[in-house]
Structures are given as C-alpha cells and as structure tokens.
Amino acid sequence: MPTDLEKGLEEALARRQADGLYRRRVTLESPQGAEVVVAGRKRVNFCSNDYLGLAAHPEVVRAWQRGAERYGVGSGASHLVCGHMTPHRALEEELAEFTGRPRALLFSSGYQANLGVVTALAGRGDWVLEDRLNHASLLDGARLAGARLKRFPHGDAAALETLPHRARLIATDGVFSMDGDLAPLPQLAQRCRDHACWLYVDDAHGFGVLGEKGAGILEHFRLGRSDVPILMATLGKALGVCGAFVAGGDALIETLIQQARTYIYTTALPPAAAEAIRASLRLVRKEKWRREHLEALIARFRAGADALGFSLSPSQTPIQPLILGSSRRAWEVSRKLRERGFWVAAIRPPTVPAGTARLRITLTAAHTETQVDGLLDALARSL
C-alpha cells in the first residue's frame, strides 16, 4: 500500500499530467542524426542540439575507439587524484588555443561548470546579476553560492546602468537555448568595465556554430578576454560528444582547480571522450562548409515559415522556436508531427515562462533542403 508520502507524490504527478506538463522520455534506437529511429519507425529529427552533425561522425567514433583501446573506458578518479590523463591535458591545451586564452579547464558537464564557476567566485554578500532567461544552471549557481541574485530583463543591458555595491558577476547565456537569440555582449562588457566586475558567458549553443572559424559568440562579436574574462562552452552540442570547459587566464583557472567543488569532487571525463572531442574540434576547424550549410538551411526555413504565415522568434541561430502559447496545444502539434514522420519537441513550463509553450525546432548541418521543406509542409498541415 502506498504511504502518505507516496500518495502525495502521486497526486502531484496527476496534477502535472492534468495541466499538460508531464514529461516522458523517448528512447532512440539509432545513433543521433538527422534521421533517428523511435519505436521502430524512422523520423526526421528536428530537436537535437547536434548542430554540426558530428555526434556519429566516423572520425569522431574512431577517435573514441582508439582512445578506449589505449587509455581504457574510465578515468578512475577525479582530475586532482589520478584521473587527469594525457588526452585531458591535450584537449585543454587545444581548447585554450582555439578560444585565444591562456588556459582551459574541463568539466564533466555544462551544469557542473556553471555551478563550479559561480560558487568559486561569488559568496555571501556578493551580488550576481543574471539575464532573466539564463539557463537554470547559472541561476542555481548563484543560489548555491549564497550570493544575492538579481535577474535583469532579458537582453536589456541598459537595466544595468547602475549596479549594487559588491557586484561580483554579470552572467549570461550567449545564445539563449529556448529562444535562439543572442545576448548583447558588447553592451554587457561595457557595463562590466564601468563597474569593475566579471562578465561570464555560457556559450553552450554558440560554440562551434557562430564565428568565422566556429569559436562561438565572442568571435561573432569580435570580443576578447579583456571584454569577457570567463568563457564556458559545452562539448556535447555542436561538438557532438560530452562535457564542458571554462577558458580564461591563469589565475582564474587555478582558482577553479582549487575551489570549484564540481571540479574537485567529480570523476574526470573518460579519456576516450577527450580523444573524441579532439577529433571533433579538428572537424570544426577544417570543415567550414558545415556552418555554411547550416546558415543556408536556417535562411531557407525562415523564408518558408514566413511564406506560410508562421510567426517565428527573431533568431538567426539553429534554434527556431515556434511559440504556440498553451502547453496542450504545443504537445498536440508535436504529436501530429510525429505521426507525419517528424520529431520536434514540445517545450513547456517551467522550462519556458507560462503562456509561451512552444515547438523548439533545431536545424543541423546534417539536414537536407528536402527535409527542411518537408518539415514546413508538415507544420502547415499540423497547426
């Protein structure tokens, strides 16, 4: 018989389901790609963050296999015990060089990186100012640090004309994960210079995609380390593998090694994963056509959506949200698309604000023009 505690959980779950907010996992039966197999049926995948189509790239897969053969499948310990291996060091050096910074430090996930940085650099009495639509991990980092968190209006650098005493960090997503728009980094950098505080940018959705060589939003805006002292990016989206890194100066990286609890107390990434990421980074460097093809697909999708009268958010990135309002409607349209052979996730509160449930459509370099046109046709018949 369920206990009173279990009954309480069951009732809360039932309410969530009645409100159209219940989340269910879907199991893929194929590698990540433009087409995936779900429940024995192929569907064109328009909800992946594998923006450059590298998650199942043969060179990346072979690099993982060779890394496993040479270094094994596990790192065995945290970086500070005996888990820091040759592939980790090589990857950190290559990421530092690619981003134009003295040092880089690997983390096991972007969530851990954000928690680790904010808690290492801010504490009780310090102010941390964050964009209202920042990723949950940045917001959670400020709360965990015990800092005074102030959320400013989305994309509004003018709201930071004056800052509280002991303002320590201004933290922002580079590309906002649910809207696809860009943070006003040049203006935020100026605010930080004016008030002598750190600017911390989470470039999870820009790294590998934006910029002439794919170095991300800082390259896009032509900003350097003096503008943005702390850069974080993930390695499981455009680079297609897993993990994250923070790049910056020597003092910053050494401070994180000494004080970032999510780095100190976490088993290091598998060395084979580091080898796979190195292979992926080489592809980002040498295959510019992936970004060019992706840009062309984004333009094609937006032009087609405009011709059909769809109202898209103003995004020039692979993230193209179609806001539908109610959670039930977003889920229903997502279901209709699945029936027509397209997989597009319905994103509902609390991931997005109430009343802004949406289809989060993501394009990748692995898609074809025919697949994009097919999605537009399916949307026209499903809305």
Results as ranks from 00 to 15, higher is better:
residue 29 E to L: 09
residue 43 R to H: 11
residue 176 F to N: 05
residue 334 S to K: 14
residue 178 M to K: 14
residue 185 L to E: 03
residue 240 G to R: 10
residue 358 R to H: 04
residue 347 I to Q: 14
residue 36 V to M: 01
residue 46 F to E: 08
residue 74 G to H: 14
residue 143 R to T: 06
residue 134 N to H: 12
residue 348 R to F: 12
residue 45 N to M: 11
residue 172 T to G: 10
residue 212 E to G: 11
residue 172 T to D: 02
residue 123 G to M: 01
residue 98 F to N: 03
residue 277 I to F: 07
residue 254 E to V: 10
residue 58 P to W: 13
residue 59 E to T: 08
residue 353 P to E: 02
residue 40 G to L: 14
residue 94 E to R: 14
residue 96 A to T: 11
residue 24 R to D: 02
residue 145 A to W: 10
residue 12 A to Q: 12
residue 134 N to D: 13
residue 178 M to S: 12
residue 273 A to Q: 12
residue 209 V to L: 11
residue 197 C to E: 11
residue 21 L to H: 07
residue 346 A to Q: 02
residue 80 L to R: 06
residue 166 R to G: 06
residue 95 L to R: 11
residue 340 R to D: 08
residue 222 R to A: 15
residue 354 A to F: 09
residue 208 G to K: 12
residue 85 M to V: 01
residue 237 K to Y: 08
residue 184 P to R: 00
residue 113 A to P: 00
residue 309 G to S: 08
residue 49 N to L: 14
residue 117 V to Y: 14
residue 231 L to S: 08
residue 189 A to F: 04
residue 383 L to Y: 00
residue 54 L to A: 08
residue 138 L to W: 01
residue 157 A to L: 05
residue 123 G to S: 03
residue 350 P to W: 07
residue 280 S to D: 09
residue 161 E to A: 13
residue 242 C to G: 08
residue 209 V to D: 08
residue 233 A to R: 09
residue 294 L to C: 02
residue 110 G to D: 13
residue 290 R to M: 10
residue 315 S to N: 05
residue 177 S to M: 11
residue 241 V to N: 03
residue 199 L to A: 10
residue 129 L to I: 12
residue 232 M to Y: 07
residue 370 T to C: 04
residue 377 D to F: 11
residue 173 D to G: 07
residue 286 K to M: 08
residue 180 G to S: 02
residue 128 V to Q: 05
residue 248 G to C: 06
residue 339 E to I: 02
residue 93 E to I: 01
residue 37 V to E: 12
